[in-house]
């Protein structure tokens, strides 16, 4: 079953290397999403299914969508349609689809294969994680909430329109 680990690790490394060398931001985001999915499969094999789910939902879901929103905001205007037509070509899809196909084949292999995979002795269940998170690390949870609140306020302050922020924020 460890062959799944090695293939996922190879997919993660290849897609990350492709992501940081792309010229186009959307292509880089596609490759990075594939890389995050591969890392989620690595987590699954390592016996951390809850973290694997979080990786897909929060990293590949929420954070990458945030990046995509910003890419879309930066490309406003009539030239974005032409740019979009230029971006969506068949060969753009080949790389991410190929790497994602390897990942889905691995996932099917895991799900059809040994049932004992999830019952490994190193498997850390979500219950244990939750007990640890809200037990000894309760202070850390509070600090994480404060970090998120600070990030929210900072993003709100910085992302405000430059017309209203120009007069007030200029002298700070």
């Amino acid at each position: 079953m460890d062959v799944v680990f090695y293939i996922s690790a190879a997919v993660a490394i290849v897609s990350t290397a492709l992501a940081i060398t792309r010229m186009n931001a959307v292509h880089a985001l596609l490759y990075l999403i594939v890389s995050l999915l591969a890392v989620a499969l690595v987590f699954y094999v390592l016996g951390a299914p809850f973290v694997a789910a979080l990786e897909v939902i929060i990293y590949a879901g929420a954070i990458m969508v945030l990046f995509l929103f910003v890419v879309m905001m930066l490309n406003l205007g009539p030239e974005s349609v032409e740019q979009e037509r230029q971006w969506v070509k068949w060969y753009v899809w080949v790389g991410p689809v190929l790497l994602a196909g390897i990942l889905i084949a691995e996932l099917i292999y895991i799900l059809l294969g040994e049932r004992s995979l999830l019952a490994g002795n190193h498997n850390v269940s979500p219950t244990q994680v939750a007990v640890t998170l809200f037990g000894p690390y309760l202070l850390g949870v509070e600090l994480a909430s404060m970090v998120l609140l600070a990030g929210l306020i900072g993003a709100n302050r910085l992302g405000r329109g430059s017309t209203s922020g120009r007069e007030k924020g200029k002298d700070r």
Binding site: V51, A62, I63
Partner: peptide, 18 residues
Amino acid sequence: GQVMFMFILAVTAAEVAV
């Protein structure tokens, strides 16, 4: 280790927003 990953996740979300 997984608890630490969740803290990394929270820090990452705040960092990306800012």
